[in-house]
Structures are given as C-alpha cells and as structure tokens.
C-alpha cells in the first residue's frame, strides 16, 4: 500500500518534473536567446595555460559561484592565455578590452594586473597577485582603491625573506645561499632588497641567480650545486610558481635543497614551500568578480589581503637530501608530507 502510494507519488513527481523540465527548457531557451546579448562576460587574463591554472581556476569558479554566478549559465568567461610569454599580456588585455567584456579578471601576478590596468581605465578589473599593490603601482590605496580596479593580494612577496630564514634553519651550518630571481618580475627589486636585509640580519651570504626562462632552470640548479650553497631560495614569482613540478624534479635531480612560494612544489617532491594560500586568493577574486558583475563599483571594494601564509614541508625529500628538519619547523608546518 505504502509502496503503491510511493509509486504514485513518484509518478506525480516525475510528471511534475517532466513538465517542469519542459517548461524550464523552453524558458531557458527563451532566456538563452535573451541572454545571448544580456549575459555578462568575464574576460579572464592569465599568464600561463589553463592546465597550469587548473587549481586556481577551480578556486576562482568556487568564489564566483559563492557570489551567485555559474559559467555558461549566468556568466560567460572569455579566456586569454599568455602561455608563459608575459610580454604578450598587454596585447591580450587590449583584446579583451576590444571585446568590451563586462569585467576583466587579471589573475596570477602583478604582471597580469599591470597589463590589464594599462589596457583600460573604464572596464572594471579584478586582480589577483602577490606583493603590495600600492608599492607596485596597481592601486593608490588598499581601503579605497579608486579607479576601475580592485582585487586580492597574497602575502607571498612579503614573505620571501622568511623562506631564507627557514632555509637557514634547515642548513644552520651553511653561510652561503643562492636566491633565484626573475628579473622581469615587477617585484624582483623589492624582494631582492628584502632578501639582502634578511641575509644581513641572519648573517649569511647571498648569491643571486637571475632567471626568466624555463630552459635555463637546469643550468641554475647546476650552478647552485657547484657553488656549494646551502640551498636555493626562490623569490616569489608566478613564473616559478607555475613551474613548480619542473623545479621539484630538477631539485631532486641535482640534490639541491630548495624552497619556493608554492605548495605545488612540495607536493611534487620539493623540500619546502612558504607562501600565501592561492586557493583563498583566487576564491576571493571570484567573489569580487561576482560582486562587480552585480553592479558594485571596484572603487568601493577595498583590496583584500589574504593573510594566510602556509608552510609545507616534505620529509621524503628531506631524507633523500640527507637533511633533517628542526623541531621548530616541524611544529610550525601547516602540512608535513611523509
């Protein structure tokens, strides 16, 4: 009896659902035609490829959904990828401006933000970057960014000195460390200054290795090994961050202890990473993009700083390198890979 009632109820539900789907279908079709012009378009500017952005993109979509937008249903996203060639960014940004997108999302570094900023002063821009947006000339004020852009910044750039500190803690007997810097990065100078100050405070010697091309990575690790430096500290730079896998492989291959900003490096077998949580920063960028789509003005949205900084350490890599972590680091780590 109950089963029958249940079956009847189910049938009714099914019928209703069918009707509803038919109705919704026609409504969607109608709306889709209406939306063809009306649906807002996000112009997403990325410095690399969709594959390298994968986890960041999903965080971004999460944030967008939190603000009530779903790609393909309530918002369209136009992607422009620089595929690692950062000098292409301004042209790609200009392309998005020509497409007259509703909002430009410039995610994945100061370069992208600056390229988008120089391309338009009218289309709202939501950026995601490391480093101090004021110092980098992206905005004038964090609380009242003014103009047409706002966004999220992580603390990755500020904490590059902490990476040196951690490396020095791991290799307390060594006084010489190598630092990898991308000279094309707008933050390279400030980071270098920071790192030199930290080296002075810690009483260590720094060897700066400038590098902005993937094919030079191998030579860089060879150099570190040959100079017998205690370890290689990567400055914060998206170019390095997006190539964490390759860097981890090279570090293992050259048995060089290294620390980068990205957790991807540690997860791929690298020794340590310390930097901002990009999952959070991209998610917040998604939320902001959604709020701008809803009509809020970028100038009213303060620049958000993702304050969470995470330390990842890989014990397997450490044992491969013949290194043991001091208890202070083991205790402080957000995640220990064993």
């Amino acid at each position: 009896m109950r089963a029958m009632a249940h079956a009847v109820g189910k049938t009714i539900r099914q019928i209703r659902r069918r009707d509803f789907i038919a109705l919704a279908g026609s409504a969607t079709a109608w709306m889709a035609s209406a939306h063809a012009q009306a649906m807002p378009v996000i112009g997403y500017l990325g410095s690399e490829s969709p594959e390298r952005y994968g986890s960041r993109l999903s965080a971004f979509r999460e944030g967008l959904a939190e603000a009530g937008y779903v790609e393909g249903r309530s918002v369209a996203i136009e992607f422009r990828w620089a595929e690692g060639e950062y000098d292409k960014l301004p042209a790609l940004a200009a392309d998005l401006v020509n497409r007259q997108v509703t909002v430009i999302v410039a995610a994945g570094g100061a370069e992208v933000a600056l390229a988008a900023k120089s391309a338009t002063t009218t289309i709202p821009i939501v950026f995601e970057m490391g480093g101090n947006p004021i110092a980098l000339g992206v905005v004038n004020s964090l609380s009242r960014p003014g103009g047409n852009l706002t966004g999220v910044s992580s603390l990755s750039v500020e904490v590059s000195r902490k990476r040196l500190e951690f490396m020095q803690e791991v290799r307390p007997d060594t006084k010489k460390f190598a630092v990898a810097v991308n000279p094309t990065s707008p933050t390279s100078n400030s980071q270098l200054k920071n790192l030199h100050a930290a080296a002075d405070a810690l009483g260590v010697e720094l060897v700066v290795l400038r590098n902005h091309a993937e094919h030079e990575f191998d030579a860089m690790f060879t150099a570190v090994r040959e100079m017998r430096a205690g370890g290689l500290v990567f400055s914060s730079d998206p170019y390095f961050a997006y190539r964490s896998r390759r860097l981890a492989a090279l570090a293992a291959q050259h048995t060089v202890p290294a620390i980068t900003q990205s957790r991807d490096f540690t997860l791929a077998g690298g020794l340590m990473s310390y930097g901002g949580d990009f999952g959070q920063s991209h998610r917040h960028a998604g939320i902001y993009a959604g709020r701008v789509l809803k009509g809020e003005k970028p100038s009213d949205l303060p620049v958000q700083r993702v304050t969470k900084v995470e330390l990842f350490i890989n014990l397997k890599a450490a044992s491969n390198l013949g290194i043991s972590f001091p208890p202070s680091l083991l205790g402080s780590a957000d995640r220990v890979i064993e």
């Binding site: 603390l155 500020e158 904490v159 000195r161 902490k162 500190e165 930290a198 405070a201 900084v309």
Partner: peptide
C-alpha cells in the same frame, strides 16, 4: 627587554 620576536611575515629575532 624584548627577548624574542616571532612573525609570520618578518624575520624572527
């Protein structure tokens, strides 16, 4: 006297 300073961002002292 400050005997110890630890920070997430700055260098520990």
């Amino acid at each position: 006297k400050e005997r110890l300073f630890v920070s997430r961002i700055g260098l520990n002292r």
